[in-house]
Design a protein around this nucleic acid. Sequence first.
DNA 1: GTCTATAGGCGGATAGAC
DNA 2: GTCTATCCGCCTATAGAC
Lengths: 206, 206
Amino acid sequence: MPKAESKPSEELILNAAVKVFTRKGYAGARMEEIAKEAGINRALLHYYFRDKETMFNIIFETKFKEFFTGLFGVFQSNASFTEKIRSIIDHEITVLSKHPDLARFVIMEIAQQPDRLVQFGQKLGLNPRLMLENFQKEILQNVEEGKIRPIDGRQLLMNIISICIYPFVAKPIIKTMMQMDENTFMDLMEKRKKEAYEFIINAITP
Amino acid sequence: MPKAESKPSEELILNAAVKVFTRKGYAGARMEEIAKEAGINRALLHYYFRDKETMFNIIFETKFKEFFTGLFGVFQSNASFTEKIRSIIDHEITVLSKHPDLARFVIMEIAQQPDRLVQFGQKLGLNPRLMLENFQKEILQNVEEGKIRPIDGRQLLMNIISICIYPFVAKPIIKTMMQMDENTFMDLMEKRKKEAYEFIINAITP
DNA sequence: GTCTATAGGCGGATAGAC
DNA sequence: GTCTATCCGCCTATAGAC
């Protein structure tokens, strides 16, 4: 709890805001808490950012990008099919390990207001349709070549994403139920990169 | 929007409260909205249930039970290992198809206040430790018998649960990205019971 | 039981001194 | 830029009439 920083710049405030918004969500976040977290006064928040919503949108855009762009990048690369799967898993688990509340935050706020997905997706130039079509084509091609079992591309994509993301979304539940501390959980996630990959490859290999 | 019901009983209010709380979460829910949804006055909410928190706790307990008990029941049965997996998948997807916001709601509110998991878990007499130990033992036994590949029980359990639950948690994202309407999504989930089972069985079969 | 009216407090936002 | 003081509206909760 920094008491009297020399320069409580935008940066400092934003960091505090990220913490509070991602933990509490828009509805649960309090300007007072953000100010306290940044070690400054409430009024100063309004000096730098007009209001709560403006602040939220800036943070949400950042987090939205963090959550989605890497994924899209992988799909657009021209690595082999299995290498793509490995990259997705690696990327997702790495990113979510670094940003504990990222997935839960983005999912929740989109659930609250689904048009944010369209709005921010367009703003960042993401094209889910194209991404998905390419992935489907690639699966179909691999199926025809007999490299993987026949499978609905949507189901496979959901499986991969679920396996990577869900443990972080449900982290508080999993930690308690499996009686793990933070380090044990992070260890398990690190190992999961390899284990999840093998699990999925086994599942789709004929 | 029912205007003048004959008997706006507890039941009617609770149903309205369930809708609002599960959609908006505790922080985002408004007593006014619940009253409107039930077609009655705000004051009446306080007549039947003392305050917002009391109301929330009643609903959360119900939803908590819905979310967890079936799962525990399956684990405690003495079906075969693969039958247990099938039951879990069937049960989870069936329940979550009926209660669209259940998983997101329970996960979010536990993330907001993790001790609710302990508190309500004890109240309902759930024993995650025992459940988990039994499952681990069963996996180990199956591995030794050469029936399934060697795998960390915690990872396998996470995989199964993730595959079942995540699509519902991220439903608003998935629907938009895959351009599905409600019916298409529900169809996909129904098919998923079979597809997820095969996927997992393939993954663990040597 | 169900309503209207209103108390009471919290939280977001602004004015203005320094 | 950063603070204190304060306004104002929203939301929970209660009082009290019917």
